[in-house]
């Protein structure tokens, strides 16, 4: 190491330096995460297998289920399709959201988060970069689950407008759950343990968003809880499009879309603020690098 040459180099570098744009930074995050993810090939395989066996379980469960309640709720009579869509999307958002908070936790653990945030990268870009990748990977599992579902008898619509509508609802589902992920991350920064929000979210949605059963089955005192979660509207919209040929022009689906948009508009600023607060407070008590 020749000190003098390095100093000269750095001095020159500094004059030439340009700032990277947000997109480039997000791309850098995605590339980094992809490389890390790819080194865990075994896990990737196992994750796919996990999703597959989960879906396959419902093939057997559907055999002992009587469809009256499903029909009554207007989703047709095919429980297998109903359950596979519910489980696949629920897993999709849950895994995206939980890996986001896990990665924030491990960055904190390894001290890399301090390094990143001490560079010229704002926390918003950091969050965006961290979450985009999770959802890309999650989509891969989602498609695997749906493909397997199709192989074992899940029947979804072939109507292109319905498919397109389902994709739109799915996009809203992604955005709304990135926000949930950020809220989870904020809490992680603060309490440094587990991911309470993410878990609560996972189980509450499984219970109240109609993942495995239509919501008309819940007693009236409980069914309102589902209304809090964006997953409820997303699932409803996606199922109606994929199972009953509805499109976003159908009133029920349109209502779901509006509710999702409202959720996003209302919660994004709150989530960013919460993260900012948590970040500032950890900086104040100096626990950013702590685990």
């Amino acid at each position: 190491m020749k000190t003098k040459e390095l100093i000269g180099f750095l001095r020159k570098e500094r004059e030439d330096a340009k700032e990277a744009g947000v997109l480039e930074k997000v791309a850098a995050f995605v590339a980094r995460d992809f490389k890390t993810w790819w080194t865990y090939k075994l896990w990737v395989t196992i994750d796919v297998l996990g999703t597959l066996t989960f879906v396959a379980s419902y093939y057997f469960v559907s055999k002992i289920i009587s469809p009256e309640i499903l029909v009554e709720a207007g989703y047709g009579s095919d429980y297998l399709t109903f359950a596979v869509i519910g489980v696949a999307f629920q897993q999709y958002v849950f895994s995206s959201v939980s890996t986001l908070s896990e990665s924030i936790r491990s960055e904190q653990w390894d001290g890399t988060m301090e390094t990143i945030l001490s560079s010229r990268t704002s926390f918003r870009v950091f969050l965006l970069g961290e979450s985009v990748f999770r959802f890309i990977i999650g989509s891969y599992f989602l498609l695997a689950a749906l493909a397997l579902g199709a192989a074992i008898g899940v029947k979804i619509t072939a109507n292109p407008w319905s498919l397109l509508s389902a994709a739109l609802v799915a996009a809203l589902l992604v955005v709304s759950h990135m926000i949930v992920g950020i809220l989870g991350a904020a809490l992680i920064l603060k309490v440094k343990q587990g991911d309470p929000i993410v878990w609560a979210f996972s189980w509450l949605t499984q219970l109240f968003s109609g993942v495995l059963y239509p919501l008309n089955l819940l007693p009236a005192q409980l069914s309102w809880i589902g209304a809090i979660f964006p997953l409820t509207y997303s699932l409803d919209g996606i199922r109606r499009c994929l199972m009953a040929d509805a499109t976003i022009l159908s009133p029920i689906v349109a209502e779901d879309v509006v509710k999702l948009v409202v959720f996003i508009a209302a919660s994004l600023p709150i989530a960013l603020k919460a993260f900012r607060k948590a970040y500032d407070s950890t900086r104040k008590d100096g626990s950013l690098g702590q685990y």
Binding site: I65, Y79, P196, W199, A200, W203, L207, V211, L212, L217
Partner: peptide, 26 residues
């Protein structure tokens, strides 16, 4: 502490969930 609480809640919730799902079982 959070972990202890959330883990407990999530296990309990799964039982509740299958309870409701079971209502559809023939």
């Amino acid at each position: 502490k959070y972990w202890v609480v959330t883990d407990f809640l999530s296990t309990a919730a799964s039982i509740v969930m299958y309870f409701f799902m079971g209502l559809q079982v023939d």
